[in-house]
Amino acid sequence: MSVPRNLVIILLSWAAAAFPTPAAAQTSTATLSANVGAVASLTLSSAAVAFPDADPDVVAQIPATGGPLVITAKSRATGGAQVVLSVQAADDLRSGVVVIAASNITWTGSGAGFVAGTLSKSSPVTVATWTGSGVRSGSQQFFFRNLWTHPTGTYTLTMTYTLSAP
């Protein structure tokens, strides 16, 4: 009789060691969602571009005073989408009733994605293009085509920049 009792005691001792108090655990799952919408932000170093007077024989292309216009374009677009920065003149250069075509203003571009162009009042002209989201910076150096045929006067026009991120 004593042998079986000892065996039971040994088995119980082993069981206690083999099955310690188990850890309790409970889980809960939550869903995280983020709506990241398309958004764009455009910053120009100056809201004005001016050209000084000059002798057409000496300066055929008058650079804008103050140097290049620095542009910072921030855009959040869908993956792989093309982001476009464009500019369009609201009208020709005007001084009262006297008109000089907006196409006499040209620019060169500096910085990744920036390209040269000629101003137009009839359609937007591309200033820069990029792919996808990001913060980009570059510059435009404007020039005015200086001709003896331009009537004297102080001319102005308004340009509108558009940054589109689909």
Binding site: A30, L32, S33, V135
Partner: peptide
């Protein structure tokens, strides 16, 4: 600004 525009999701597992 570097995120692509989209609706993102993921699940989180809380464990006590």
């Amino acid at each position: 600004w570097t995120y692509n525009a989209a609706n993102y999701t993921q699940t989180l597992v809380f464990t006590l």
